[in-house]
Design a protein around this nucleic acid. Structure first.
Lengths: 118, 118
DNA sequence: GCAACACTGAACCTAATGGTTCAGTATGAT
DNA sequence: ATCATACTGAACCATTAGGTTCAGTGTTGC
């Protein structure tokens, strides 16, 4: 049984939920870049971009290293494996659920109630 | 070339970034439930849970129907296919990137600069 | 009809996000 | 040494997110 770390998923998904950050990842998948380059590319201040990079780095999606006065950013150690596995797991359940609709529509709808209130 | 709708990814990822909402999906993957049941399960008010459901529904991850005075919630029409595809695409790039490290470390590091700022 | 139930909506609160500016600090080039 | 570059950090700001309470609205059951 696969164990998904909730906080890892949290940080990864939250990091990916922002289009700018997805753009940065896309950009970095081509080649590494400095904060300045990314900031200019996405039309924001260095400080703003640095925050995005911090989020991505915290999520393990980007790794950085200081080279002289620039900071080189590249894709990080997180291979998205956990996330991918989690999503796939859900996809399977989803499809099973929808397949089950046929059965339900054909047979007896098994009503269940677990609500013990009132 | 696959085209990913940015706003669709935004809403899906943002919806999934919250642990409570992932919990709700997990719960719904077993069987459908009302707002009350989910609210009690996740220890929050009806109103609070309804907001989460609204987010999930907006993202297409949950669908609901009013039955008498209760609202039944179940897994929605969104099969996570787009998201899954997007993640997988990245995973591939990630791994290619890391494989490429071997080449880079063995050969000539191709330095590129696209920053035109002066 | 009337009470209890399940949800809904508006208003509000707090904390986090995404962005800024401004003032450093460290590095590279002259 | 000095100046420009590239980043860093603190402080600030507006918006959104996650949650609440409170006051309805529509259903169910007696």
């Amino acid at each position: 049984m696969v164990q998904y770390d909730s906080s890892t998923l949290d940080t990864a998904l939250a990091a990916l939920a922002d289009p700018t950050r997805r753009g940065v990842l896309e950009r970095l998948s081509e080649r590494e870049a400095t904060i300045s380059v990314l900031a200019e590319r996405f039309d924001m201040t260095l400080t703003g971009m640095k925050k995005h990079i911090a989020v991505l780095e915290h999520a393990g999606l980007v790794s950085t290293r200081k080279v002289g006065r620039v900071r080189q950013c590249s894709l990080g150690p997180h291979h998205l494996g956990d996330l991918s596995a989690w999503i796939e797991n859900y996809r399977a359940k989803w499809e099973a659920r929808f397949d089950a609709l046929d059965v339900v529509l054909a047979g007896s709808p098994k009503e269940e109630n677990e609500n013990g209130q009132g």
